[in-house]
């Protein structure tokens, strides 16, 4: 018996394109393989907002965040999410649904407050990210991209979505000294990793689909050899090019900061 899901991409034109619109078709593809029939919808205006099981909001840069907040505020997104709809908020989308965010001039603004994070300015980082496998979420090592000048502070003890092997992530101190990335709180997944994240990492698409269908047991194994090979090659490339576990990163924070200067 096939279950029907609606995936809505919200206001993709409000922000700078981050190549993350392929996430919707990735959910449809993975859903089909999981016997779910996924309908994808793009919402461009508040009055075309739909009741969906998964909402995708993304884009990059801070120029469009104010417009995105305004557009999202006039929808039922908050109510839908509190009813259990899944929200994947990427980069500019994460700013918009955060409790507060900063514009390029450094001024602080309120976000929708759906994700328990606040956003702060930080030096710019760009590059390819490799996550560590996470058995609790049934995720292998994933690949993604980051390009931002922001620090993401989790609040209310919310857990991070990922820990990173390579990359800068949230840029907040973690109790265990690991590099964390994004936030996972209830049905909200927030991340800076933009681009076709779910297309590159079908297991993350599985996680979104599992949350959307309230599935608690793991999905049966499902290989997608072409995508897995592309990811394997990227991860190998990143490991080759990233400096061998930077010795500075093992020093206490203040010492490392002084040395970096």
């Amino acid at each position: 018996m096939s279950r029907a899901l609606t995936v809505a991409t919200l206001f993709p034109l409000a922000t700078v394109a981050a190549a993350d619109e392929a996430n919707a078709s990735a959910l449809a593809r993975r859903g089909a393989a999981r016997d779910l029939s996924v309908e994808t919808v793009t919402v461009d205006r508040a009055d075309s907002f739909v009741d969906a099981d998964v909402y995708l909001v993304g884009g990059t840069g801070r120029g469009g965040v104010a417009a995105l907040v305004e557009a999202l505020t006039s929808t039922d997104l908050a109510a839908r999410v509190s009813d259990g709809a899944v929200l994947l908020a990427v980069d500019a989308g994460l700013d918009a649904v955060a409790r507060s965010w900063v514009d390029p001039a450094g001024a602080r603004h309120q976000g929708l407050g759906l994700a328990p994070v606040s956003i702060h300015s930080a030096p710019e980082v760009t590059g390819t990210v490799v996550t560590r496998p996470d058995a609790s979420l049934d995720l292998p090592a994933l690949i993604g991209w980051e390009a931002n000048d922001l620090r993401t502070v989790r609040e209310d003890g919310a857990r991070a979505l990922f820990t990173l092997e390579v990359g800068s992530g949230n840029r907040t101190e973690d109790a265990l000294g690991g590099t964390t990335e994004g936030v996972l709180a209830g049905s909200i997944l927030g991340t800076r990793l933009h681009g076709p994240l779910l297309a590159l990492n079908p297991e993350l698409a599985d996680l979104v689909l599992a949350r959307a269908t309230q599935r608690s047991e793991p999905w049966p194994a499902l290989e997608s050899p072409a995508v897995e090979r592309a990811r394997r090659e990227r991860i190998a490339e990143v490991r080759r090019e990233s400096p061998k576990a930077d010795w500075r990163s093992r020093l206490p924070g203040p010492v490392a900061a002084r040395l970096r200067r």
């Binding site: 034109l13 922000t15 700078v16 394109a17 981050a18 190549a19 990059t60 840069g61 120029g63 469009g64």
Partner: peptide, 12 residues
């Protein structure tokens, strides 16, 4: 159409 490399929005 949108461009993806310079962080310039289509609107601007």
């Amino acid at each position: 159409s949108r461009e993806y490399t310079r962080g310039v929005s289509l609107r601007s």
